[in-house]
């Protein structure tokens, strides 16, 4: 950590794992087969290091897409654990299998224009939520640390918005559904509840609707056409001279001096 300039070239190896010379190796078991891999790798990179080229079970590699749900145990421990392969670091004695797909139930039609109360709508689309036995396995299974049983309880009570918000971080990997003794596909119920919440239980943005109407009326087409025809110099002048809305301005409070282009 010095300031000497020769030292300033960073390591550039894309996404391939090149273990440092002093790397320590551990043994993990991928679907029953042992492999030696460098410690500190994620399960995903460890599997690639072992020679796997993924078709399933690999997606964003950043913990947000839900492609790489994984079950594992540590040798000698009865506990069944879960994690995302791209986010979970390998441990010695890890025995793992990915669940890249799990059969789930999605109610076929979602009507966002219905007059049916939201809680009734959910209860009709997914009556199986009332079979929840409250075992909490879904919550313990969730790799995103979501209180899955908790949001299902909200839905049972009719608090669709509360449950939707509680489920917001869901990446729909399906691990909760794979362990549910009541055969609930929790992540699909939550998806439906979030859309109902966004479309029906939250006030619509009037400002957005008004602007969209102005766009549909063709209001901005001549202004944009003028910019498309303008010389590069004039455009640069406009760009440099444009006013910047202050960071801490309250919504709808600040207005620019030039209001002819709104």
């Amino acid at each position: 950590m010095t300031k000497s300039t020769q030292d300033n070239k960073p390591i550039m190896v894309g996404d391939r794992t090149i273990p440092p010379p002093d790397a320590r190796f551990i043994t993990i078991s991928i679907m029953g087969q042992p492999y030696e891999v460098p410690e500190t790798l994620t399960i995903l990179k460890a599997m690639e290091y072992a020679g796997y080229q993924f078709k399933r079970g690999c997606g964003c590699r950043g913990g947000i897409c839900g492609a790489c749900g994984t079950f594992y145990r540590i040798e000698g421990d009865h506990t069944l654990r879960t994690g995302l392969a791209c986010q979970t670091v390998v441990e010695p004695g890890m025995i793992l299998a990915q669940v890249p797909f799990f059969p789930s139930n999605r109610a076929p039609d979602l009507d966002l224009d219905t007059k049916t109360p939201a809680d009734e709508q959910i209860a009709t689309l997914y009556p199986e939520i009332f079979r929840c036995v409250g075992c909490g396995t879904c919550t313990r299974t969730c790799p995103m640390d979501i209180d899955v049983m908790g949001y299902i309880a909200y839905f049972k009570r009719g608090d669709i918005k509360g449950g939707a918000e509680k489920s917001f971080d869901c990446i729909m990997c399906g691990l909760c559904a794979s362990r549910c003794p009541a055969n609930i596909s929790q992540f699909n119920v939550a998806m439906t509840a979030r859309r109902i919440t966004g479309a029906r239980l939250t006030p619509r943005s009037e400002v957005t609707a008004a602007r969209a109407e102005q766009v549909r009326s063709g209001r901005y087409e001549p202004m944009l056409a003028e910019l498309c025809e303008m010389s590069a110099e004039d455009l640069k002048t406009l760009y440099v001279e444009r006013e910047r809305e202050p960071d801490l301005a309250k919504p709808g409070e600040w207005m620019p001096k030039d209001q002819t282009k709104l």
Binding site: S205, V207, Y220, L224, L235, M255, L262
Partner: peptide, 18 residues
């Protein structure tokens, strides 16, 4: 998306092209 009062597609255009 230029949907707020002090904004419009015109200013969004300027930001994008600059």
């Amino acid at each position: 998306g230029a949907d707020q009062e002090p904004d419009s597609p015109y200013f969004h255009y300027l930001d994008v092209i600059g």
